[in-house]
Structure formats: C-alpha cells, structure tokens
Design a protein around this nucleic acid. Structure first.
Lengths: 210, 210
DNA sequence: TGACATTGGATAGTAACGCTCCCCAAAATG
DNA sequence: CATTTTGGGGAGCGTTACTATCCAATGTCA
C-alpha cells in the first residue's frame, strides 16, 4: 500500500499523513526504495487512532503523541496499566490557574472528601488537582456542588469505573490499549449519554409532577 | 470599580478585558465620562464565568459568547430550560467527519438502542449524533462497546442526570443559569471522578482477586 | 498646576496549532 | 520517455486567544 492508497483508505490527505510522519505520530512505511514505501494495516489503524483521539477525544496532537508512544512501548506490567495510562493522559491541567484571591480554593477539599468516602487513590494523582479546579470553578460561578451531590455523582462514576475496569482484557498489550483508548474515547460517550439522560429524566419527571 | 480594578479582582489582564469587550463577552461599564467607566459585581461575575467556561469547560470564546447571550436574554419558560440550554451547547459536532468508507457507521444505531431502552428523547437531538460518532470512534480503534456495556453506562448516567435535574432551582432565571453552567462545568467534575473511581475500583478488585 | 496614570478605541503583532502547499531530485509506472 | 509518486523539507495559511502599542482625552495626586 502506497501513501496515496493510505490516504484513500483513511480519508486523510497525503500532505497530512506526511505531516503526521514528521511529527512522529505515524511510523514510516517499509522502504521499498528511496522513493517508495509500503504501508500496511498498522498504518491504517494508527491513522484512525490519531483521528479518533483528536476529533472525538478532542486531544491535541502533542497529547496523541504521548498516547501513541505508550501504546508502542514495551508493555507495562498489567497491575499498573491503569496508573500508567492515567499518567499518560494527565496533564490536562494547564498548571495553577491565576488564582482569584477571593474565591478561596480550600486546599485538600477533595482529599478530605475522598477520605470520608473511603476512596483509595494515590494522594498525588493529578486528577485530584483537576477535580479540585473543576469543583472550584462551579463555586466561582455560583452553582454550588455540595458534598452530598458530589457523593451521588461519585456513586454513579464508581459504577461507571466498575464497568470500565471489568471490561479490560487480560493480556497486557491489549489492556494498555484498551485502558488508554477507553479512557479518552468513552468520555464523549458518557457526556452524550448524560445529555440524553437529562432530557429523558426531565421529561419523565415533568409527567409525574407537572 | 475601574478597569484596572476589575483586572485585579479577576486576575485577567486589562488588555484581555478590553478584548472581551470588543468580542461582546463582557458588557461595557457605566460610562462616567469619555475616558472613565464604572464596573460592578456583574462584571466580576461575568469575567469569572468566561474563565470558568474556557479554562475548566474547555469551551472556545465563540461558544462562551452563545452561552453568555442565552444567560442575558429574557428567561425561557421553565419547562424548556433544559432543551434551550442543550441547544445552546450543541454543535460540538464539527459536522460529518470524513467518513471512512470501511467503518460503516450504522445509521440510527443509537435510535434503535434508545428505543429498546425506553428513553424518550427528541429524535433530532444533536447529542444523538454526537453519541453516534463517539460510539463509532470506539469501534474504529478496536475497543468494542457492546450494547450491554452501553446499557450499564447509561444506567449510571441516568442516575447522574437525575441528580442534575433535581438540583435545578425553580425560579426561571436561576434555572437557566444552573442548567447551562451545570452542564458544562460538571462534565470535568465527572471526568475527574471517573478517573479517580477507576483507580479506587481497580485497587479494590486487585486486593480481592490478585 | 503639572507630572503621571488611565480610559475607550483602534490596529497590529504574537504564539501555538493543525494543517496545506510547493519545491526538489530520484525512482517507478505506463 | 512522459507522467506520477515518493521522501524530505521548508514555507505559508487560517483560526484562536490573547498581548502590545499608540492615540488623544480625561482623571488623579502632589
């Protein structure tokens, strides 16, 4: 399969494929000569992966590269697949947001809440920071998220996570791929489901007590 | 409050505030003279809103403008607040993705699935399209999402939506604000909760069957 | 009163991102 | 032998979200 055929197979322009190669997102084809290379199914798969992560997952190419590198690297041991995947995906946090002096972000509010809840999570997990910021953002615009509501959300996300974790395949390589892609690509699924469920629930409720 | 003070209060540069004014994201201050204007708490609130939606919600300024316009417009009737909010927020879909001829996106797969599930949703809801794409993206990279798994996700998102809908305040204006902001700003909360829950669940499971 | 800061208004510049286009000479295809 | 395609590389482009600079009019403070 030549570059133009890869382009046809994926619907991605030749120039873009070259660009992906330059950026290290697409591994080079098997060189048949100095001006001819052979691309196979792995290239098609890779291109689709890149497009799925950018278009649906909304990731930048830089982050896609990190994911791609993890997927290509020798398999991490199975037990820590999830942590490895999360480390790869973390860093959404654009650092510390210019802190608004009057909206006090209670330091460690998430830690305390998780302690009460009995969640066991690495205290240095970057997503704790993300949650802290997201929670504070809700406060800063005046839509309070009290701990009870947070708990009810957490109940359901625990259920989601249970589905997530149990559907991870057992072989190491597939597991890494599954966790990384599942984490990124299922987020949009959940978001869309939430919107649709909101509509369904609000209609149901309105019928029972209009 | 002068512009410089608004800048101090929000941590946003004066030049950026001017830019937001030009873009219609920030309403002008009360003009005291041709070179002096007075800004109040509504301006502080607005700036915080813009920053929350862009930094945490990851929205573009163009989309923030749509939200801001809805919040400023005369209140829609309470019953359709949610639909109005969703309409405002929809359009994430960058249109039809360059369709890969070999990854057949089953037309109406989501419709069929929702029928079986008994969800009542506007058949033209844009999030159906989003879900369709997100689901197809999972398939295209080889992480199948079968209907059973989708159902289990949906169960939990239904629970989330129930929390969402029940926590909407009853006065119309607050309701619109709550729905719009809750929809955008709670997504990151849920995503972070999912990551943390994944870690908690995987640790718990690994202890019971290592 | 006068030095200095700030204002609205406007234009232009910047940096990152994700392509997209064009060039080349070597090689393959028809 | 003309045309197409290749790898390689550089340059350009459109969008986004600022940021910087300039202006003359107007405030503020000593």
């Amino acid at each position: 399969m030549r570059l133009a055929e890869l382009s046809d197979a994926t619907g991605v322009a030749v120039a873009t494929l070259k660009y992906y190669q330059r950026e290290g997102l697409l591994h080079p084809g098997r060189a048949l000569s100095r001006t001819q290379a052979d691309y196979d199914a792995t290239h098609v798969e890779r291109v689709r992966l890149v497009r799925a992560l950018t278009e649906v997952g909304g990731m930048s190419l830089a982050r896609v590269k990190r994911v791609v590198d993890v997927l290509a690297s020798p398999g991490e041991d199975r037990l820590h697949v999830l942590e490895a995947a999360q480390r790869t995906l973390a860093g959404d946090g654009t650092g510390v947001p210019a802190c608004d002096d009057d909206v006090v972000v209670p330091r460690g509010r998430v830690h305390e809440w998780m302690d009460r809840r009995g969640w066991e999570v690495d205290p240095a997990d970057p997503f704790i920071e993300d949650l802290e910021r997201a929670w504070a953002a809700c406060d800063s615009v005046g839509i309070g998220l009290d701990e009870e509501r947070m708990d009810r959300y957490a109940d359901h996300m625990e259920g989601v996570a249970d589905v997530d974790v149990r559907s991870v395949p057992s072989e190491a390589e597939a597991a890494v791929r599954h966790v990384v892609l599942g984490t990124v690509l299922v987020d949009p699924v959940l978001v869309a489901l939430r919107r649709l469920a909101q509509q369904h629930v609000s209609r149901t409720i309105e019928r029972t007590r209009p």
